[in-house]
Design a protein around this nucleic acid. Structure first.
Lengths: 173, 173
DNA sequence: GTCTATACATAGATAGAC
DNA sequence: GTCTATCTATGTATAGAC
């Protein structure tokens, strides 16, 4: 079963979020799975390859969003950021939060992830990065993260609409 | 010189922010200072005591802010959150971001730090935690952090006013 | 694909001299 | 107050059997 690989990623994501990337050992992961460390190394050549596998898809999705950001309307863009953040919640937290993650990411992926926030902020500001655009981006992104963290689940349609409206107001008031 | 203690804290804060708490070793800190590990352990009994010393003052300041939040006007509260975040920037990032920090904090400090965000959010929402209050709190707090991170310095008076206005708009629009 | 066993480096922390 | 030297546990990672 190459389903073991999936389970490793699942547990790793969970533990990375809980203890941080650097604070989680290979032994922590394998212990929770009930497999040996060597078994894990059959599926991944190194610890940072687990991280790489975890962030690959979300990074692509965010990059895609960045690429098409200029063509979207503001409410649509805000909704997309909210939905992407919701669907990629666990990895989003990892990427944005844990300092040891940035360091461990391969040279190819690191600058991309660092530039994402700035690019999306600029898109909200109509090409310019203003304090207001920063506030709006923080409102939609971190507001959504805070909501999920506190409630344990994705925002309801009503909460989603409120978050978007609030971010919109921050931008244009 | 008990000034060594101060220098240890200075370097530790820098490295914790860069590599995360768990990702920073005692040897990393002492190497940058040019002292031995044993010398560090003369000043601190354990690694987590360094962390404790770093977060003590900011935590007190945030708690004070939480305590008096209900009596303040909304713009005043937003300004206070911004200023506190600015002055405590490095530690604020550490507290909010690094998952390994939460874990390492002593049982006394941990729940306090976790409750801070929720309490301030509630204060903004007039006692209630709403999606709008979350968005406003994220706008002022994370917007300020993003600004400092990107520009490398505290917001100018104009930027400060814009961030506050944006958060205010998110709250009441 | 998973195991036991192990190599080798580094982690946090301490002993005891100066 | 700082050092050298060292303890013990744990870290990532690999070898080789099954």
């Amino acid at each position: 079963m190459a389903d073991t690989r999936r389970r490793i990623l699942e547990v790793a994501l969970d533990l990375f979020g809980e203890r941080g990337y650097a604070g989680t050992s290979i032994a922590d992961i394998t212990a929770r799975l009930g497999i040996s460390k060597a078994a894990l190394y059959y599926h991944f050549g190194a610890k940072d390859e687990i991280l790489e596998a975890l962030v690959a898809a979300p990074l692509t999705r965010y990059r895609e969003l960045t690429r098409t950001a200029a063509e979207r309307s503001t409410p649509d863009l805000l909704a997309e950021i909210l939905d992407t953040t919701t669907e990629m919640y666990a990895v989003s937290r990892l990427l944005g939060d844990d300092p040891s993650v940035r360091r461990a990411m391969r040279a190819t992926a690191r600058p991309q992830s660092q530039a994402l926030n700035e690019e999306l902020t600029a898109a909200l500001g109509g090409g310019q990065i203003t304090p207001r655009a920063r506030a709006a981006y923080a409102a939609i992104k971190n507001g959504t993260l805070a909501h999920i963290e506190a409630t344990g689940g994705p925002p309801s349609p009503a909460a989603r609409a409120e978050l978007i409206a609030a971010a919109q107001a921050a931008l244009s008031a």
